[in-house]
Simulated assay, not measured.
Amino acid sequence: MRLTSPMSLVMSMSILGISTIQGAAAKCSDGLVNVVFNTGHGGYTKQRWEKIHSASNWLTFNFGLEDKQIPMLGNDNKSVQQAIDVVNGPNPPDFMLTFNEPDNLYGSNPRKVVLHPQEAADLIKPLLHKRGNHTKFIAPVPAFDKLNWLPEFFGNCSCQDSFSAYNVHVYNKTVEEAKIHINASHKRWNDKPLWITEIAPRQDGVCPNPIPWDHSTKFMQEIYAWGQKTEWIHKIFWNSANEINCTDTNVAASFLLDFKNNSTPLLDPFNKLTCS
């Protein structure tokens, strides 16, 4: 029996388009790795975005059509009309996020609702009736996904089939807690893919000093690797691309760029994510 030489085998595999580089790094699925730009302190800039090489898309908390941005629907009639014009225009976006945490006015205590389920259902109906034929809509994302805001919204609008993916925000201290949270959301809503449009390791207290960068890095690497393995998680948006007030315990130890646009210890690992 004649043995094929290693070089011949490599050449044959190359012809078939099979990678032959020993130890070639794994790669995250296209579209999985994304970031959130928080408003305030400058928010998104092209210069900041260009430093984040691994991300496919980004979002922020207003409507926009910058390069690689996924627009987010606002909470009033003017925003809905703007969205109708865009999705029926010459360059409709591939995706559009709908209502962001409509069950919780950020910073309110006691909690105030931005849009009640019936209000949100009435508001979005004109957009769903004039949705164009290209843009895929992502379901609203409540701040408190254990409450009944989303089921009531779907019941009021009879529009659950109008959305291409569900959406969840995840702030847990550990990866295991985050997995439990995400799995619970998927168990409740399992007929479509899931987008995680905000995720970061929540801190015990405000303004951690020193910032536990090692823990945040490990959390980030593990959650992306696990997310890829599920196959039903299609996008994960790391929060945050930019530094914001450290009193926000959700993102006090997860920003990629500081106030001066300098890289934090998280940026390089984020840019080198392999999801493996």
Rank of each mutant, 00 (worst) to 15 (best):
S263R: 04
R202I: 15
L266C: 13
N190I: 10
T197G: 08
K187L: 08
A241Q: 01
H215I: 05
L267R: 05
W226A: 05
N239M: 05
I196T: 06
S216L: 09
R202D: 11
W195Y: 13
F219S: 05
Q228C: 05
D248C: 01
G227P: 02
W195K: 04
F255V: 09
W195E: 01
N190Q: 11
W238A: 07
L266W: 00
P210E: 10
P212H: 14
E222Q: 13
E198I: 07
A225H: 08
L257V: 01
T249V: 15
E198F: 05
G205T: 15
I196N: 00
V251C: 03
T230P: 03
W226C: 02
D258I: 00
T197N: 05
Q203T: 15
P208W: 06
D258N: 14
E231Y: 10
N245W: 13
T249Y: 12
T249N: 15
A241I: 13
N209A: 14
I236F: 01
P193I: 06
T264M: 00
W232K: 09
T230Q: 10
A241P: 09
E231M: 09
D248I: 08
I211T: 15
L257A: 12
E198Q: 11
Q228H: 07
A252M: 12
L266I: 14
D204E: 04
N250W: 06
W213Y: 07
E198W: 04
C207A: 15
E231T: 14
C207L: 15
Q221A: 11
N261S: 08
S216G: 03
L257E: 00
E222G: 03
T230M: 09
L256P: 03
H215N: 12
A253G: 12
G205D: 14
L256H: 04
T197V: 03
W238R: 09
L256G: 00
Y224F: 15
A241M: 05
A200R: 01
T264K: 00
F255M: 13
F255W: 14
S185Q: 02
S216N: 09
W232F: 14
L256A: 03
L256V: 07
I244G: 09
